[in-house]
Design a protein around this nucleic acid. Structure first.
Length: 195
DNA sequence: TGTCCGATTGGT
DNA sequence: CCAATCGGACAG
């Protein structure tokens, strides 16, 4: 089990978003260990990207971790109900991020089922809010270093995989950025958030 | 301090 | 289709 190094994250969001597909996201929290294969991501390009929280260089208490070093978690609450899990990427000071949108459950099924209050495998991690709940992600973990514990990403297998690129979800306000193909997912995977 | 709203989800 | 539910952004 090999953790992805800092250098993996210190690249542009589009590259990292694609290369995160097929890697393994692991959490080790008091309830136990859970693992999921990353099958869907979105790239948020930073200052220039009207869909990004850091558009125009905006820096607030919520998003300041985006301006720090790559390989840390950016976690925030959306709709007062769900936590979304992102990874800070790029060089320090360049506020880019990758949103993890779906996982394929690999281990810790019972822990996930208990947190999600469902036994249906398809409903455990197929969406950004769902996977955060299943993996035990809350904003207490905002800023955590993914090269340590309790959150990290391990190298998956090197098998070639077909990647599909499509527009991002839920960013209707982003004008000319709405249609840019910055959402990536593995072809033929059944755990994608919106089929 | 007051108001408005969201990188979603689940039930109608 | 629409309500749930609340921290944060921003205006005043």
């Amino acid at each position: 089990m090999e953790k992805l190094p800092r250098s993996f994250y210190s690249r542009d969001a589009e590259t990292v978003a694609k290369e995160l597909l097929g890697q393994i996201f692991i959490t080790r929290l008091p309830q136990g260990e859970t693992r999921g294969l990353i099958v869907e991501t979105e790239a948020y390009l930073g200052r220039e990207d009207k869909a990004a929280h850091s558009f125009g260089g905006k820096k607030t208490q919520r998003n300041e971790v985006l301006y720090g070093p790559a390989g840390h978690a950016y976690i925030y609450l959306i709709y007062g109900l769900y936590h979304l899990f992102n990874i800070v990427v790029g060089e320090p000071g360049d506020p880019q991020a990758v949103l993890i949108r779906a996982l394929e459950p690999l281990a810790g099924f019972e822990i996930m089922a208990k947190r999600r209050k469902t036994e249906q495998k398809k409903l455990l991690t197929s969406g950004p809010g769902r996977l955060s709940e299943a993996m035990g992600i809350t904003r207490q973990l905002n800023g955590e270093n993914l090269l340590g514990e309790p959150l990290f990403i391990a190298k998956g297998t090197d098998e070639p995989r077909e990647i599909i690129a499509k527009p991002r979800i839920g960013i209707d306000y982003a004008q000319e950025w709405v249609d840019k193909p910055l959402r990536f997912y593995l072809a033929n995977n059944s755990f994608i958030s919106k089929p």
